[in-house]
Design a protein around this nucleic acid. Sequence first.
DNA 1: GGCGTACTATTCCGGGCGGAATAGAGGTTG
DNA 2: CAACCTCTATTCCGCCCGGAATAGTACGCC
Lengths: 189, 189
Amino acid sequence: MPQLTPLGVTALAVLAEGDMHPYEMYQLMLARKEDRVVRLSPGSLYRAVERFAADGLIAEVGVEREGNRPERTVYSITPAGRAALRESIAEMLGRHVNEFPEFPVAIGEAHNLPAGEVVRLLGERVASIRETIGFIDASLAGIAARGVATAHVLNVHYTRALLAAEADWLDSTISQLGTGELAWPGPSN
Amino acid sequence: MPQLTPLGVTALAVLAEGDMHPYEMYQLMLARKEDRVVRLSPGSLYRAVERFAADGLIAEVGVEREGNRPERTVYSITPAGRAALRESIAEMLGRHVNEFPEFPVAIGEAHNLPAGEVVRLLGERVASIRETIGFIDASLAGIAARGVATAHVLNVHYTRALLAAEADWLDSTISQLGTGELAWPGPSN
DNA sequence: GGCGTACTATTCCGGGCGGAATAGAGGTTG
DNA sequence: CAACCTCTATTCCGCCCGGAATAGTACGCC
């Protein structure tokens, strides 16, 4: 049983709520703003659904047609699918794996740039992060006002916490670069 | 000029230090443990080098051969390559882009599991993160003992800071799940 | 001294991903 | 009422990635 991809997990999870055709899954995921959490494109989704069917995680339960529109193949999650879903979620929750984010690469090669430019760029970065945090806070306020439980938006809280930590680290590093406390080995111009 | 991939940045950066053939780049990157920071596989590296040559970022400067060994094509970075390198580093430093980590997906679908199992899994996760932090601290202590400047291992400090923030968030969330302060909407068994 | 293993150096290939293309249906605007 | 845009629903294509394969050489070991 191969580990599901992130898109696979969210796709199977919506199918776990009821039988659907792929385009309906796509629309539902868009309506729930899942595209902020996973890379969501129609091509990838349809291919993922194909794989699920081939692996027995879902089963075709009918083909609808309205007028001359394209056929809609409706799928249903199987018990094997539910098991694979729970297993993959457990795996992603419990094990921390390196996902090789870009920023460490950039900061690791930042000595190719002069200190002044690095400071300026890090300032831009922290500003864009703080802006994102602002959007998140506004969104969370709206969610709280509608009485949605925190447990349903835990991922948003998680993301906010990590963004705040990154912003704090950047602030402290920028300040150390400014005072010269952190000597820069790169070019001076 | 297309944005370089993370592997592209590190590869061009080593070429910026001197002319080399791809395998030598590979060995140098391994010796420097770059494989902890970028996904590093021979196949990807050779293809990246091909693309660089096609885009004029590097130029072939000779073909060596020792005995009956395979030919080694030596490359040299071009001025366009240096410009692309600096530009890509600046881009990665200054702009924060969503890279869609897995964990938010998992926590967003965690309601498919019972609260008890989620608590157990989050506990495993925080333990493995704290273990990683331990390794990082040991490694940083060794580095400091050898008199290496902090600026050369900024990426390690960054990674440590974000891991610590994640561990703290997990601890707090686990405790709120334990006390019932954070109600769980999932299955009870 | 022959055998196996590790290193050198590169190529190959399958698969997934994501953006673009397709094509008909319905709604909207001048 | 014609032209155009948007929505529905899916397929297609090209690129890139990463793991495996290849093939020759050096080295250690019994």
